Simulated scan of single mutants.
Amino acid sequence: MKKIMSRNAVGGAAIVMASMSAGLESSQSIAAASAPSMASAASAPVATRKENRALRKLVYAAFAKDKSIDAGDIGVSAKDGAVTLTGTAADAAQIEKAATLAKGVPGVTSVTNKLTVRRNFAQ
């Protein structure tokens, strides 16, 4: 093998360089061909995050419209239409009211209510 390489070192190097160059070009064309699909795949989670964020804001807006509910300690998370309420409320009636309001928001498909009654600590 050494004798072949020493006799054809210049020619072999040219063949290796040519094949490396061809491999680079083909990998670039593959990358270019797959770039649009990668961009659309990357934008899908961004769009989903924006939709989830918009749904959360709509639920918070529904809470703000209803003056009978104190939503200061209520957290809202949304994922593909499924809303989860976390935190505390003043009483059980407010917990139910928060769930009802969230269910009434357009785009909400389900509500998981993890709210608990706020405990007042004696001082």
Rank of each mutant, 00 (worst) to 15 (best):
A98I: 08
T48H: 12
L58F: 01
F121N: 11
K3S: 07
M20N: 11
S27K: 10
T86M: 07
I15A: 14
A35L: 14
A41P: 09
L24R: 04
A54K: 14
A78R: 03
K57M: 10
Y60V: 03
L24W: 04
A61V: 01
N52H: 12
S26L: 05
L55R: 05
A82F: 07
M38A: 15
I69G: 04
I30W: 11
Q94C: 02
K57R: 08
T48C: 07
S43K: 04
F121S: 14
Q94I: 12
D66Q: 01
M5Q: 04
M5K: 06
K79W: 01
T109V: 10
Q28V: 14
V108G: 10
A33I: 00
S43W: 02
L85R: 01
V59I: 10
N52W: 03
Q94W: 06
L58T: 09
A99C: 05
R49N: 12
S43C: 01
G104V: 04
Q28E: 11
T100I: 03
A90V: 15
L115D: 07
S21V: 13
A89N: 04
P36T: 08
N8Y: 15
L101T: 08
A89K: 06
I30H: 11
G87Q: 04
T112D: 13
D66Y: 06
P106L: 01
M1T: 08
S34L: 10
S6G: 02
S27Y: 11
V105G: 05
L58D: 12
V105N: 03
A13R: 05
Y60G: 00
A31D: 15
A90C: 02
Q123R: 14
G23I: 02
